[in-house]
Design a protein around this nucleic acid. Sequence first.
RNA 1: CGGGGCGUAGCGCAGUCUGGUAGCGCACCACACUGGGGGUGUGGUGGUCGCAGGUUCAAAUCCUGCCGUCCCGACCA
Length: 571
Amino acid sequence: MRASEFLLSTLKETPADAEVISHQLMLRAGLIRRIAAGIYTWMPLGVRVLRRVEAIIREEMNSAGGLELSMPVVQPAELWQESGRWEQYGPELARLQDRHQRDFCLGPTHEEIITTIGRNEIKSYKQLPINFYQIQTKFRDEIRPRFGIMRSREFIMKDAYSFHIDQTSLEQTYWRMHQAYTAIFTRLGLDFRPVEADTGSIGGSHSHEFHVLAESGEDAIAFSNGSDFAANVELAAAVAPSPNQSEPEPEPLTPFDTPSVKTIDDLVQQHDIAIEQTVKTLFISGEHDELIALVLRGDHRLNAIKAEKLPGVATPLKMAEEAAVNAAVGASFGSLGPVGLSCRVIVDSSAAVIRNFVCGANKQGAHYRGANWDRDVDGHEVADLREVVAGDPSPCGSGTLEIRRGIEVGHIFQLGTKYSEAMQASVLDEQGKSVPMAMGCYGIGVTRIVAAAIEQNHDDRGIIWPHSMAPFQVALVPLGLEKSTDVAHATENLYTQLTDMGVEVFLDDRKERPGVKFAEMELIGIPVRVTLGDRSLAEGAVEIQGRREADATKIPLADALQNITQRLGVG
RNA sequence: CGGGGCGUAGCGCAGUCUGGUAGCGCACCACACUGGGGGUGUGGUGGUCGCAGGUUCAAAUCCUGCCGUCCCGACCA
């Protein structure tokens, strides 16, 4: 590709409304342009990147036995009513009507369609297992699209759905997909981790998310430094410290005045108490809008997902109003504690092993010292409520946890028979009996991968593409092209040779100053740059510089082709 | 949805308080100089100042309504 026949839409200045680095660089490099909130045009340069990502996904899906198909974006309401999701899905599902006032939606995902295909086309266990996939546009009317393409409303997803005669077969395909995903993200050159994830209301024995590690990630992931264990912090089990040290004698329960204590920090600082000896008490709503007290150690955070899963707790989690707490307990935020409560009390397992703890006295401006479970608090329950923190022992039993942030680019899970039962997708088994098929589903955020790759690979000059997703592999930068026949010849020769080998070359034949060309090639992140100028050609050399390298290396013109292909790992 | 910010040329912004000919930088076009890291100069192109209504001799500016867009948003007792 020649620059003179291409459109580079680079910006010198960063658009004001882009916050994260990938969004800024995607706009500056001219990969995308915003059309509406969470809706973008992919410009020619961006599409080249997308297509390369898609090609890798397609290759790995095909070799893992996937069958590519293409399902409609616009989907009839009837199918969604059948699965029950027309009502369940909520406002994220974009709905529309056709000219006959028939209801449709824009597909946010395709379980309904694929299940329809499955039930119509698959009749016998002999046709199973089978795994379909597509790479296609999805629409989700997000409450708040943000970070450019990272959380957009319209996006491209690779979604796959498998059908099975039983759970065993489902698990086989599930792990095959796990392997395929590992192969895909490895080939894309991303630093990623598969992590155990919430199986949600669907159930199933496994679910894994694939996260690209990046500070700007929206998810927190807990890793063990002593094993392969990795889990979304939403899910990671917190291990309570074992109380096997010399147990202190129980002290008497002693109230003391804390008129200016509003927070745990105040308490710790003003009264010289170790934060590990304090507990905090949060009130949430139960299913019948009654108060439930949750007790955590002062330095721990509530994990809302864990709390929500407790029987009897309102979903989604709802914190109690201050007024309601005050009315029921007789004290307000800042002086609350578990002693003497009449409501249900659930204590985090790490808080439940503290002896002689300090807590609010349920009397305004007062706390207790020397509080002890069982003696002072009756009939409390113990559960895992808190978010894990760095340094916690790993729940797998080996090593301690480290917390990193990640961008979720893939998610695989086992659907079981949820959709096949709701939509009567059954086959005859070996006994001639009709059974609902087990299903799995496997997603990859194709557009999000592009943003994630930039988050992970950039410097102050711009994007640094992994070789496998670069829009062009080599930039040829001739200097003084129109004045020097030497430069012109060397450039054309190299361009032809590389192109003939199937290398994607960007020939910057514009009449721009060298600095402009260098800056733009770096901004758009082409992995290998070859500079051809009279200065080096006089010595029979060209200059080759990898995008991550600080300086160019002079290479004899005769060796240039080999040097380039070596760098690219092709030829 | 709640809170806050912002809408003036493709991008970044000033002008709005205090009404009086719509500006600056980048980009773009032409020419000249320059020619190995976003160069310099001269001259240009491009705007119904988000939309609608109102006040006024006069509105980017004041008033009302609407729209768009960006950021934040349980608790951390």
